[in-house]
Simulated scan of single mutants.
Amino acid sequence: MRIGFFVNSIEAETATFTTTGLAFAAVVRGHDVCYVTPDDFVLRPDDRLFVKRRVPPSKRFRKAESLHSALQAEAEVEVVDVTELDVIFLRNDPSLDAADRPWAANVGAMFGRLAAERGVIVINDPGGLALAQNKLYFQDFPRAVRPETLISKSIEEIRDFVDAHSDGVILKPLQGSGGKHVFKIGTPEEANLNQIFEAVSGEGYLIAQSYLPAATQGDIRLFLMNGRPLEKEGVYAAMRRVPAKGEVRSNIHASGTAARVDITPQILEIAEMVRPKLIEDGMFLVGLDIVGDKILEINVFTPGGLGSMHELYKVDFAAAVIEAIERKITQRTVYDGRIGNSVLATL
């Protein structure tokens, strides 16, 4: 299998990223991997789609860190017809490019669609990802799994919303990820509300969500694959992300810590409620952030944490993901182009 990982940039990748873990798992299983960035597509006059890919050297890597180092220092650059790839795994975060390189934010979905039309398996499905360019996508899921939410650019609307929620409100940008510019507002009279509003509203529309008191214990990151909880060796790919003292965000890179978690029937029920929409949109690998009986976010672009889960449970979930992609290659052959990419992405 020849699999390309589409990322924001080569330089920004780290050895601990889930993408690196997935690439390493693919190499261990004998597959050829490469990396592609938003700069790297070429649609030629004859309508052939080419891609510039970075290929790590062909040698045995014993750990993900070695693969990452080789990618950064020793990768060969090749320009090939996109059909030279069997799979393109879209793993970029559009919000990271929105400010400085807005042209790059949607490149994965745009050229991913063209690659899929030429027979490449593209995951997550680019048509679904095009619908999910910001957190407004979350509002398409069942109301029962969503905290009460206001989306607005009006500070008056936000003040009224805060006033109606005695436990407080979480305020964050509609476009964004990774816990950037996330604030907890207790009352509409908070002295710094105006400053927070000015800082966050510069990024566009704001989301105000009712604060869930259970969030003090952190949230649960649960991976879904092909619409169902990712499970291997009887263990779910999940962890509790515990925020640092005095911190609202539970993101690991924001000093949150990872802990084991038991997946209850209630959590599985929540996952089942969002499954139909994820399947419809061709979302192969997804991360749910759950607090209590609500989902705070659905990460369909770059869900992370498989490395932390590997350390917690000594289970290689990344290998399970690559195995699932291998099965898609077989299914593509069986169906011989009779099903579209969005179906194949979650089959």
Rank of each mutant, 00 (worst) to 15 (best):
M1N: 12
M1R: 13
R2Q: 15
R2T: 09
I3E: 01
F5M: 06
F6E: 04
V7Y: 01
T16R: 12
F17E: 12
F17S: 09
T19E: 03
G21K: 01
F24R: 03
A25K: 07
A26L: 09
R29M: 13
V33T: 08
V33R: 00
V36A: 02
V36T: 03
P38A: 06
D46G: 05
L49T: 08
F50D: 08
K52D: 15
R54I: 01
P57K: 11
R62S: 15
S66V: 00
A70D: 09
Q72V: 08
A73F: 12
V79F: 09
V79Y: 08
V82I: 15
V82R: 05
D86F: 07
L90F: 04
R91M: 12
N92S: 13
N92L: 03
N92C: 14
D93H: 03
L96T: 08
A99V: 09
W103G: 14
N106K: 12
G108A: 12
F111V: 14
G112S: 08
R118M: 14
R118T: 04
I121K: 00
D125T: 04
A130E: 11
A132N: 13
K135G: 00
L136H: 09
L136W: 05
Y137P: 01
D140W: 09
E148I: 10
L150A: 07
E156M: 11
R159I: 11
D160H: 13
V162H: 00
A164S: 15
H165C: 05
L174K: 08
G179H: 09
K180C: 00
V182R: 04
I185K: 03
T187R: 14
P188D: 02
A191T: 15
N192T: 05
N192C: 11
N192V: 11
N192W: 15
L193R: 11
E203S: 10
Y211P: 01
L212I: 14
D219N: 13
I220E: 03
L224Y: 01
L224V: 06
P229H: 07
E231Q: 14
G234F: 04
M239G: 08
P243G: 01
E247N: 15
V248N: 11
A254K: 15
A254P: 03
A254E: 14
A254D: 06
A259R: 13
V261D: 05
I263A: 11
T264H: 13
I267F: 02
V274H: 04
V274T: 10
R275L: 02
R275Q: 15
I279V: 13
M283D: 01
G287S: 11
V291F: 08
K294D: 02
E297K: 05
F301C: 04
F301T: 02
P303L: 10
S308G: 07
V315P: 04
F317M: 06
A318L: 07
V321R: 10
I322G: 01
E323R: 14
E326P: 04
T333P: 00
G337I: 09
I339R: 11
I339D: 06
L344M: 10
